[in-house]
Amino acid sequence: VDIAAIPACAVPVEWTNDRRRLAEAAAVVFHLPDYREIGDARKYPGQTWVAWSMENPQNYPRAAAPGFMRHFDLTMTHESGSDIWTPYLQNASWWEAIRNSAIPSKTESAPVVRFQSASIDLSGRGAFAAELAGHIGVDSYGRYRPTRQIEGPDLGSQTKIETIARYHFCLALENSIAPDYVTEKIFDPLCAGSVPVYLGAPNVGEFVPANSYIDATAFGTPAELAAYLRHLLETPSAYEAYFAWRSQP
């Protein structure tokens, strides 16, 4: 964890990654995907141990194992039922900045873009994307099976957003499906001014504006979805309706 990146707290607090100071800590935060860290940790009297994870427990089953989780006093995850809720959801100023920004021109010949860097696939996103690409143009970026490469310097998230902005649609496919597991996959295209095609959390509608995305599960097959995307390309007013939320409170 980048200690310097932690926002200022309203109460006096000191953060440290120095494990030699474990005995001084009032609270100890464990990143659950790195669960082996707990192996040599001693819990001192009065300490609060916090289990922190932004991952779907499907990807890390240990995070749902009672025998492992008994070590912790609090949970801090993307799940709304956690003791401390830490969703991927952006704050109000982020949304306001998007509402006040122009929608970039769509300059790519392929209408759909996809970014994927990890091979984790518990959602069926790989097969879904492959079949969709057989019916409509899809440019894939990232470390996992790319068909296009970033042109020029790669500045990380900035370059990703600028790239997505050139496409009409962006595949927002979660690596696994569970309630509340709504990640940057859908927020990045909303920020970029592209329409997300979402496959993931069944309650995604609680996290993003109404009519701001296309629900991939609403179509029987990727071929039907591709036909709908082509309809939107041929009907500008129908496509632009997915940006109406930008002009609403």
Rank of each mutant, 00 (worst) to 15 (best):
1 V>P: 12
2 D>K: 12
4 A>I: 01
5 A>W: 03
6 I>Q: 04
7 P>C: 09
8 A>Y: 07
9 C>G: 00
11 V>T: 08
11 V>N: 04
15 W>D: 03
15 W>F: 15
16 T>K: 05
21 R>T: 11
23 A>P: 01
25 A>K: 08
25 A>F: 08
26 A>K: 11
27 A>T: 04
28 V>H: 05
29 V>M: 09
32 L>W: 11
32 L>G: 11
33 P>S: 12
33 P>R: 13
36 R>A: 06
36 R>W: 10
37 E>A: 07
38 I>A: 12
39 G>T: 15
39 G>D: 15
42 R>W: 08
45 P>K: 07
46 G>T: 06
54 M>W: 13
55 E>V: 05
58 Q>A: 10
62 R>L: 15
63 A>L: 11
65 A>S: 14
65 A>Y: 15
66 P>T: 11
67 G>Q: 12
68 F>M: 06
73 D>M: 13
74 L>G: 11
79 E>N: 15
80 S>F: 00
80 S>E: 00
81 G>Y: 04
84 I>H: 02
85 W>L: 02
85 W>F: 11
88 Y>Q: 08
92 A>N: 10
93 S>N: 03
94 W>F: 13
94 W>I: 02
95 W>G: 11
95 W>C: 10
97 A>G: 15
98 I>S: 09
98 I>D: 07
98 I>R: 14
100 N>E: 02
102 A>S: 14
103 I>E: 06
110 A>S: 12
110 A>G: 01
111 P>I: 08
111 P>W: 07
112 V>Y: 00
113 V>M: 08
113 V>W: 00
113 V>D: 10
115 F>R: 00
116 Q>F: 06
116 Q>M: 13
118 A>Y: 13
119 S>C: 08
120 I>D: 03
121 D>W: 00
122 L>N: 15
123 S>H: 11
124 G>K: 05
124 G>L: 05
126 G>K: 02
130 A>V: 08
134 G>R: 15
137 G>K: 05
139 D>K: 08
141 Y>V: 03
145 R>F: 11
146 P>A: 06
148 R>W: 08
149 Q>G: 14
150 I>A: 12
151 E>Q: 04
156 G>D: 06
156 G>N: 09
157 S>G: 03
158 Q>V: 07
160 K>Q: 13
161 I>R: 12
161 I>G: 06
163 T>Y: 04
165 A>I: 01
172 A>R: 00
174 E>S: 04
175 N>K: 13
175 N>L: 13
176 S>A: 15
182 V>Q: 02
182 V>S: 04
183 T>F: 11
184 E>L: 07
184 E>H: 06
186 I>Y: 06
186 I>Q: 03
187 F>V: 05
192 A>D: 05
193 G>W: 08
194 S>E: 06
197 V>S: 02
197 V>F: 04
198 Y>F: 09
200 G>D: 03
200 G>C: 04
200 G>I: 02
203 N>H: 10
206 E>A: 14
206 E>Y: 12
210 A>M: 01
213 Y>Q: 00
213 Y>H: 03
215 D>V: 00
217 T>R: 09
217 T>Q: 06
221 T>A: 02
222 P>L: 00
223 A>G: 09
228 Y>T: 01
230 R>Q: 14
232 L>A: 04
234 E>F: 00
236 P>C: 09
239 Y>R: 03
239 Y>E: 03
241 A>L: 01
242 Y>T: 02
244 A>N: 09
244 A>K: 07
248 Q>Y: 12
249 P>L: 05
